[in-house]
Design a protein around this nucleic acid. Structure first.
Lengths: 232, 232
DNA sequence: CGGTAAATGTGAGCGGTGCTCTCGCTTTAA
DNA sequence: TTAAAGCGAGAGCACCGCTCACATTTACCG
């Protein structure tokens, strides 16, 4: 069961490739990620990296999983600092962690949540689990708040139609949830709104000098979103 | 003052280049946009396109402006169908138009609102005006609703700090607005949330089969966002 | 009207990319 | 010990952005 030297070297090289790729991604973006450049920095001829990575897309997949896990770790870590019963604070910690990671790693964030690379379909079996870590946490927060009676009992603003209700039922069953449809609907909106706010800041959609303190703006938005989710 | 044939030919060629670029963008995405391919389709040798376009980035800028204007036209057109006093319906029309355009033109939408191309800074003097057409409409809707007394008078959820208040004052002055800070803050959130919802659908951030009728989900979100903005 | 300057298209060429293939060498496993 | 598998090197293909020197066409002006 012990690793042969060759196996150890392979793992080492793989992680070096991902590490170099991560660096190049940060500097040149996903479009500028070049296997030849990675090979150069690895000190090896260009064709040699194909022993480790089938093609450029596969390196992108590795970096995608790498990024999802880095973000997931940051979020989990932030949420775990909050007392178990304070769900609104947990939500704010989650949102703050997403924003902080995105601001610190804009290129990686862009790879995860930006425009998809055309012709590249992320392989679900590798990306689904790490790619759903944030929404899993958010769902947990809302579900536990609901079970603990810590969710404001809003009157439903609008009733989802029958098609949507079917989808919501499927989601509820798959994730073992007890929250009603309108809470689920609000949760999805809060989810997308959270990433919408982060996108705008990280992708520079606000003007260059519109907001001098985007962190403060985001805090304001987080509070509004916690309220929208019904967290008290 | 009348155009020479050469001038007419140049304009014609320019618009052909943009048109071909638009098509290639839709098929191959921004990263796959190739001046050589455009030249081939134009029936001209590759170096000839450089007589019309300084480099690839400049073609991207043209397509950016082209996309902003297409989206702006779609939004203006949709909003103009709504009676002048029904601001909530105008907002829903705006949101629906954004989504419809984005779903129909995902690659162009991605160029406008996806991850920025690293090393490419859109020239503000060309992109600012078309790039702000949607937010200009949204601001107009909220401002006019406010002046017409058609905005719910919410208690402010959270008070923006002094830095943010300064930014809001500047925005208010520059755009000649009369809405108070907390309305402005909500407006920004609604703005980002709207595009967050569209991003999630167009960029495929929901799972592949999570929602069978994303349009219905979006309608639900639009209603919630209109309510969040205070539109009645 | 004729000449000059600008605009336009051509083709070669440079350095870069992803990716494939063949060839040797080394490590592993039977 | 030997056969198989893994690995790196290097050449090569087709593509890319972009530049340059050159011919041709068009526009304008004395």
């Amino acid at each position: 069961m012990t690793q042969t030297p060759r196996e150890r070297a392979r793992l080492q090289t793989m992680s070096e490739i991902v590490s170099i790729g991560r660096k190049h991604l940060a500097v040149h973006g996903a479009a500028g990620l070049s296997l030849r450049a990675v090979a150069r920095e690895l000190g090896v001829v260009s064709s040699a990296v194909y022993r480790y990575v089938r093609n450029r897309d596969e390196l992108l997949t590795l970096l995608l999983v790498d990024g999802y896990n880095a973000l997931g770790d940051a979020v989990d870590n932030a949420v775990n600092q909050i007392p178990a019963g304070d769900f609104a604070a947990q939500f704010r910690a989650l949102g703050g962690a997403v924003r902080a990671w995105a601001v610190a790693e804009p290129a990686r964030y862009g790879l995860l949540f930006g425009s998809p690379v055309p012709g590249y379909e992320a392989p679900a079996e590798q990306t689904t689990v790490p790619g759903t870590r944030v929404i899993t946490q958010l769902v947990r927060i809302i579900e536990e708040a609901h079970r603990a009676g810590k969710l404001r009992a809003d009157e439903p603003l609008a009733v989802p139609g029958p098609g949507l209700a079917t989808d919501f039922s499927a989601i509820r069953q798959e994730l073992g949830l007890s929250v009603p449809d309108h809470v689920l609907a609000r949760g999805v909106l809060v989810w997308t709104a959270l990433f919408g706010a982060v996108n705008f800041e990280v992708f520079g959609q606000y003007g260059r000098e519109t907001f001098s303190d985007p962190a403060a703006l985001f805090e304001l938005h987080l509070a509004a979103l916690a309220d929208l989710a019904g967290l008290i």
